[in-house]
Amino acid sequence: MLAQEIYEKLKAEFGDAIIEFKQEPFFDPFVQVAPEKLFDISLYLRDTPELDFDYLSLLGGMDYKENLGVVYHLYSIKLKHSFILKVTVSKDNPVVPSVERIWRSADWHEREAYDMFGIRFEGHHNLIRILCPYDWEGFPLRKDYVQPDEYHGMKVPY
């Protein structure tokens, strides 16, 4: 199924929760959705037989300077089509519903997005840092991150 058709299907089902659809040459088309409805949309994408997105190949955090975002790359192994979802949240209160219960692969990806960007995934069963040490301060991939001078007595800058 083409991205345009999937978008129309979603729009008919969820209405205002589907914020925009973007299709440009050289870029994969994507759909911007409201974070509150993300869980329902994901469940719908997985469980509708003609969509059947059974595989989350990537979940990544983003820093858009004013806002934070999460990108979901979906793929259907049986129907061989793919789709991209995006959500944006404010930097002050970056909370996104977790899709870990829908796709198991989201477990570690969400932990990584939390580790690097500080995006909190509501409903995740074990949202702790995955790469940095547990007592690390700050979220390193944010654009306004300043690296510390010292970690446990070891100098950080060169």
Binding site: L131, C132, P140, Y145, Q147, P148, M154, K155, P157, Y158
Partner: peptide, 17 residues
């Protein structure tokens, strides 16, 4: 520190430290 010498917030810049 190798390729991480400048922006590697997570890398020790030389094990001899």
């Amino acid at each position: 520190g190798g390729p991480y010498w400048e922006h590697g917030y997570h890398v020790l810049k030389g094990v001899d430290r």
